[in-house]
Design a protein around this nucleic acid. Structure first.
Lengths: 112, 112
DNA sequence: TGGGGTGCTTCGGAAATGCTAGTGACATCT
DNA sequence: AGATGTCACTAGCATTTCCGAAGCACCCCA
């Protein structure tokens, strides 16, 4: 194990930032969830219907994670009928171009 | 409410293509794997070292899936020392811009 | 002849996910 | 009024998926 004095060829590691990105997007529903939320805020039930396939428990958990990471914000409207709304923050919005690129790619390269 | 005769607004579903994209990228290692492979072909062991954290079994499985989806190709060099090489196809290459966008986003919006 | 490298597959066990229900406040239908 | 439904979740299993270690076959180098 040399402590490469100079140069050194890194063993072809993948970009650290990309790895971090997939730390999030690599979890089962986060991608679609964010992708849905980016096109407009929604409540819990609405989200569940939109993402269809996701379960209550996971949705709840993912929303917490996303909120903790500062990508999504949870707003409670006290009415009499309390309404909760989830919407993306700027950090979430910033993901848009990437999501679009991904969509385009899928359209062209992924079988239906 | 509604059931008005025609129209109907879809309940805000996420883009189908994006969902398909995350059918792949939403699985634990596929993203980083593709991201690594995009910067150059590699053999099994090399890949394992590069993606570090992934296990043999999962790597093997992921590579099969990726190959089945036509994003990666598996080439066997018959020598006596059989050497296997994995490299992305054009469909895989086409993912690059999306991956770059993702990387940029992570750099700016994801904590280290 | 032993150590090291490559390319996988096969086992458990552990962790992540999914399904079914249930709660409590309100709203609406009959 | 009472039944039913919606909204936002939480709770408890069952199933799926993932990981880590081990093993197998082959080759190269000393």
């Amino acid at each position: 194990m040399e402590a490469t004095t100079a140069v050194g060829h890194e063993p072809r590691t993948c970009d650290a930032a990309l790895a971090r990105a997939f730390g999030f997007l690599g979890k089962r529903w986060n991608g679609v969830l964010l992708g849905t939320l980016v096109r407009g805020s929604a409540g819990f039930a609405e989200l569940k219907r939109a993402v269809k396939g996701i379960s209550d428990s996971v949705l709840s958990e993912r929303l917490s994670e996303l909120a903790a990471a500062g990508l999504v914000r949870r707003t409670v409207e006290e009415g009499p009928p309390v309404a909760v709304t989830y919407h993306v923050t700027e950090a979430g919005q910033a993901l848009m171009p990437a999501l679009e690129a991904l969509t385009t790619w899928a359209e062209h390269n992924l079988p239906t």
